[in-house]
Amino acid sequence: MAGNDDAHVDEFIETEGLVPTSHGRVWAHSRRRGAAAGVPLVIVHGGPGFPSDYLQPLDSLADERPVIRYDQISAGRSDRASDRSAWTVEAHVEHLEQVRGHFDLSRFHLLGHSWGGFLALSYADAHPDRIASVTLSSPLVDSDRWMRDAAALIERLPKADRSSLLAGPTDPGYAAAEAEYYRRYFCSIEPWPLPLQRAADSQDAASYHAMWGPNEFTNTGVLRGQSRVDAVRRLTVPSLWITGADDEARPETIREMASLTARSEVRILPGTHCTHLENPATYETALRSFLQVVDRD
């Protein structure tokens, strides 16, 4: 009987369902090992509109703690938004709070990637008592700073690509130049890893355009001019900042942002915006170590 008990506590338990929000239902997934006792981790994807599939490899942390991720409204397996009032940061904070309540989490670690970092900071600012730590993975923190960084990255492209991007989408070389930008700064693996391709295949262009714009280096949506620098300054919990050496979220910017809050740790890894896919072992080791330390404190 003891052997059966041991087998039971080592089993991975997965659940998924649709969580009601004021703008429709969002799909949420939980994975945990029966014996895992760590503080839960909630993962928030980027985009906006780029579903959580590309972050599925982080489910591997469920051997130590429950891992929860969800698709934001209109993305992936979630409902399409009921109206345009869904395209606000405040609405997304509300949806994340509904996910937290669905899983009855009193306190949890929060990880946000890219735009998900902006959302994680917004949530931590609104509900600081809920958060054990924040991991900001290649985060958007300040839209104007992101655009200045994008301009600097465009300057590194070959002259023909720079010229096409400056000329605009009607230029014959624009699509190829855009693809080169993504290859250098978004994901360098060709073809894209399956989790990333699955996310791309089910992304929601409407929410991406409404909240951000037509591409990573053109900001025309509701996030234009928005910043969460003050939310960084108000952070009181430990924070881990991870970015790639060739990331859209430039290391110089990430170090500067992390310096605005106490109890911050910065890790610059080889790779681009998807360094968690390009260097999974190094990324996972850094994240595990950080979460374990916070759990012990």
Score class of each variant (00 low, 15 high):
40 P>E: 03
70 Y>G: 07
87 W>C: 08
91 A>L: 02
38 G>I: 06
55 L>S: 07
96 L>K: 02
39 V>A: 12
44 V>E: 03
90 E>Y: 07
66 P>Q: 13
94 E>A: 15
80 R>L: 11
69 R>N: 11
38 G>F: 00
40 P>L: 00
82 S>I: 14
57 P>G: 01
55 L>N: 08
94 E>R: 14
73 I>K: 09
82 S>G: 10
45 H>D: 12
53 D>Q: 12
85 S>P: 05
101 G>A: 11
78 S>N: 09
92 H>N: 15
38 G>M: 08
94 E>G: 15
95 H>W: 13
56 Q>V: 14
39 V>G: 09
99 V>G: 02
103 F>W: 14
89 V>H: 03
56 Q>L: 14
38 G>P: 06
85 S>D: 12
76 G>I: 01
92 H>M: 14
102 H>G: 05
45 H>Q: 14
53 D>E: 12
98 Q>M: 12
69 R>E: 06
101 G>N: 14
53 D>A: 13
84 R>Q: 13
95 H>E: 15
66 P>W: 12
40 P>R: 09
76 G>V: 08
102 H>W: 12
89 V>G: 00
64 E>S: 11
55 L>V: 00
73 I>V: 07
72 Q>W: 02
104 D>A: 15
48 P>M: 05
91 A>N: 06
97 E>V: 10
104 D>W: 07
94 E>F: 13
101 G>K: 12
91 A>P: 01
57 P>T: 05
48 P>A: 05
88 T>G: 06
83 D>F: 02
81 A>Y: 09
74 S>N: 11
64 E>C: 00
48 P>N: 11
93 V>R: 07
42 V>Y: 03
76 G>E: 02
71 D>L: 00
44 V>H: 03
64 E>T: 12
68 I>H: 10
84 R>W: 07
54 Y>S: 08
71 D>K: 05
65 R>I: 00
104 D>M: 05
101 G>R: 15
41 L>C: 00
43 I>T: 08
68 I>T: 00
46 G>H: 05
62 A>S: 15
71 D>N: 07
76 G>C: 01
42 V>G: 05
61 L>K: 07
73 I>L: 09
40 P>D: 08
77 R>I: 09
68 I>P: 00
103 F>N: 04
98 Q>C: 14
79 D>E: 10
103 F>C: 01
53 D>M: 01
105 L>W: 09
48 P>I: 01
100 R>F: 01
102 H>M: 03
61 L>P: 04
86 A>C: 04
99 V>A: 03
40 P>Q: 08
54 Y>I: 07
60 S>G: 11
40 P>S: 02
53 D>L: 09
73 I>E: 00
91 A>Y: 02
87 W>P: 13
59 D>T: 14
79 D>Q: 03
83 D>E: 08
75 A>Y: 03
81 A>K: 12
48 P>Y: 06
79 D>R: 05
50 F>T: 10
